[in-house]
Amino acid sequence: MAVAEELNSVLGRLRAAVPELSAALVATTDGLPIAHSLNAGDANRLAAMAATALGLGRRICETYGGGEFRETSVSGSEGQMYIYSAGSKAVLGVVARLGANVGLIHLEARDAASQVSQILERR
């Protein structure tokens, strides 16, 4: 199975497990979207933003001695975006409506990020 297909399968399963998600994407650390599942919005922009949050998150972790960066989130009045490190090469971003089950999102998305990492590290 091609990498893009594998990544799309991961995103498909993630969205099926958490129906409240309105978007899920995988991007390279330099912001190139490599797989996405969006209800709406610009995958290029979201991918670039997710990679930016990843880079900044990593630097913040280094600065305060927080170890390896894992995840960060951005909450607005209408929704939230969660950004997860997915190995050394990629980032996973998911968008959810306000009031979504955060525990379930983290549970499923962390697992998905781990799968993304494994898929990309095999290359």
């Binding site: 799309n8 797989a35 996405h36 969006l38 991918a47």
Partner: peptide, 8 residues
């Protein structure tokens, strides 16, 4: 400028 992503 920004290559199109592969969507599900």
């Amino acid at each position: 400028k920004a290559p199109t992503a592969s969507g599900v």
